[in-house]
């Protein structure tokens, strides 16, 4: 029972980890509060479900999801950098537009993937158990993306992207247009979110129009949990922390379920989970609580 719960959390944690890495990329690396994720995550689920049902190879369906997710990020980036719409609002606009687009893609609000091929069934065909196939596939995808992301963030372009989030005025004075970096970062992050959506759809066997609601907070919770455990700020450690955070978040959620919380209350639990670390109290009991729970991250 406990083992089941833990492997379940591990599977889900890996499936959602890519979305959390996307949130890490925007919120932490780029210092851009991007809410597009709530739309790009279900976008990835919708397009991959639709394509798989139409007979497309699951891997090709996943690549398409990445591509469309990147377009969504690009759109938010253009709204913000070209049309000068505030970052939060730009993400909300794209997210809202994507709701209709996702419905169009699916044709209805829910698409079941019963007895459809997926990367999981492909791995099962090699003789693996369902759990074995899931851990292998998701583990490999997450590892591959993590290594690529770590590498990218140490390239010349990656450094420019990180500096844009850290000190835009400086990077401009060194010859980089911050808006290009913002667009690039948003495209990458939402490509990751969509890929994550495609994994989750294959894992749970359906895509649903509502599956993106609150995704940004889930991602943020994972990032924060990861940071509270992995203190080293170096990129390789930070991205590992995010993946770990995603897995721990799922463990917390399934623990909450076992404690008797109803599944419909989980968003409430998650919302409260991120309040303490995000709060920036000047003094008082909340700061005391913060110092205990998240030492080194007190209000600045």
């Amino acid at each position: 029972m406990l083992v089941n719960m833990l492997t379940g959390s591990l599977e889900q944690g890996l499936a959602y980890a890519l979305m959390a890495l996307g949130v890490f990329l925007t919120f932490r690396i780029l210092s851009f509060p991007d809410l597009t994720v709530d739309g790009s995550f279900p976008l990835g689920a919708a397009i991959s479900a639709r394509l798989i049902l139409g007979g497309t190879h699951p891997l090709l369906a996943m690549l398409t999801a990445v591509f469309l997710g990147m377009l969504a990020g690009l759109f938010t980036g253009i709204l913000h950098t070209r049309l000068k719409i505030a970052g939060l609002l730009a993400g909300i606009i794209t997210m809202t537009a994507l709701y209709s687009i996702n419905l169009r893609i699916m044709g209805r609000s829910n698409l079941a993937l019963l007895r459809q091929p997926s990367i999981l069934t492909i791995a099962q065909d090699w003789g693996l158990s369902r759990t074995g196939a899931t851990l292998l596939c998701f583990g490999l995808v997450v590892l591959l993306i993590k290594v690529l992301l770590d590498y990218f963030l140490h390239t010349e372009l990656g450094l420019a992207l990180r500096a844009t989030g850290n000190n835009p005025r400086m990077i401009k004075s060194l010859g980089v247009a911050p808006r290009k970096m913002i667009i690039l970062g948003l495209a990458l992050a939402n490509g990751l979110a969509a890929l994550s959506g495609a994994l989750v759809a294959q894992y749970q066997g359906f895509a649903d129009i509502g599956m993106g609601i609150g995704m940004i907070i889930v991602g943020l919770a994972s990032v924060i949990i990861g940071e509270s455990i992995v203190r080293n700020k170096k990129i390789v450690f930070a991205t590992s922390g995010v993946i770990l955070g995603s897995i721990l978040y799922r463990t917390l959620i399934s623990t909450a379920l076992r404690l008797g919380f109803s599944p419909t209350d989980l968003k409430l639990v998650t919302a409260f989970l991120v309040i303490i670390p995000l709060a920036r109290p000047k003094k008082g009991w909340l700061q005391g609580l913060k110092k205990i729970t998240f030492p080194g991250k007190e209000a600045d």
């Binding site: 390239t155 450094l159 420019a160 990180r162 850290n166 060194l174 010859g175 980089v176």
Partner: peptide, 24 residues
């Protein structure tokens, strides 16, 4: 850039005005 290393800051500056690609 405070959150980046000394070497990374210098690398950012050395590429001043150049195209930045996918090389380490």
């Amino acid at each position: 850039a405070a959150e980046m290393s000394i070497a990374e800051n210098l690398a950012l500056a050395r590429a001043r005005g150049q195209k930045r690609g996918l090389n380490r």
